[in-house]
Design a protein around this nucleic acid. Structure first.
Lengths: 145, 145
DNA sequence: TATATTTGCATCGTGAACGATATAAATAAC
DNA sequence: GTTATTTATATCGTTCACGATGCAAATATA
């Protein structure tokens, strides 16, 4: 009755805490450029492939449109992206990088390495990261069913 | 310039997604009893040791009091906990389980195993979980500096 | 013992997450 | 070709997270 309820035995609590703490590590680096972490994720998606509908971005980030839409509106207000109705399908909103959004990639060039270095520790090294990635990917795949 | 910005190379995105998806797995089980996942975490802390000040709960969950206070107030409104000024230190708010809060433990007895089973997959098994825990604990310890 | 500092908690504002619901456009069924 | 259904996105309400700030009690310092 006791052991299973111990915080120390909870996978979710560890993921939740680790996720929040890494996001906090991003905060000063991104905040300098007026970005939040979820907004940075949107940029990662658009830097890989510009001009995507809301749904493709949401799917990629494993989020719902009711989370992504307000986020994109804030980014539009900041002049980082534009949102415009799709030509062939008028239901779609196509999201495109502005010059400002595109140029942010150069300004944020050091972010991945900086955060990566902050996370390096005893059991998390370039050698062990692939194993960790594999387990997390399995969990994600499993829960997306 | 490209590779480091790929979503597939981001540890944080994996943690963020895995965390959200497991929390979603808890949702129907906890929602049945009017609980959210962070509220469940508070219960885990109080079931281990009742009558703790806000600060101890917050520290245990690696959260700030400005997150925990409103959360506890909602739990108080639900009749799950009580909050009362500390006797020896009047600044402290001591949080105690009500009978309802205490009894929830029995009602939620199947939750850990149900969620645990939902997460079991190829690379995440009772054998590999300790290794995963170790890496996450290291990351958390590292980032808490 | 006054004053300064620290500590514990709360308030406020903003930005996610997300379930539930709504709306319009596209597609399927009849 | 209507009607029904699905699809893409948006709106709404609630609950976190969290930085910034405020306040009162406790402690340290002068």
């Amino acid at each position: 009755m006791e052991e299973k309820f111990k915080l120390e035995n909870q996978l979710c609590f560890r993921l939740y805490t680790a996720s929040r703490l890494i996001t906090q590590a991003y905060h000063p680096l991104l905040g300098e450029h007026g970005l939040t972490y979820p907004q940075y994720l949107v940029l990662l998606v658009l830097w890989e492939k510009d001009a995507q509908p809301v749904n493709d971005i949401a799917k990629r980030l494993v989020l719902e449109t009711n989370t992504v839409t307000p986020l994109l509106k804030r980014m539009e207000a900041e002049g980082i992206v534009t949102r415009s109705k799709g030509k062939e399908d008028a239901r779609q909103m196509i999201v495109r990088l502005t010059k400002k959004g595109h140029d942010l990639q150069k300004k944020l060039t050091d972010v991945p390495e900086t955060v990566g270095n902050a996370v390096i520790c005893k059991s998390v090294t370039p050698e062990t990261v692939p194993g960790l990635f594999g387990m997390l990917d399995d969990i994600i795949k499993q829960l997306k069913q």
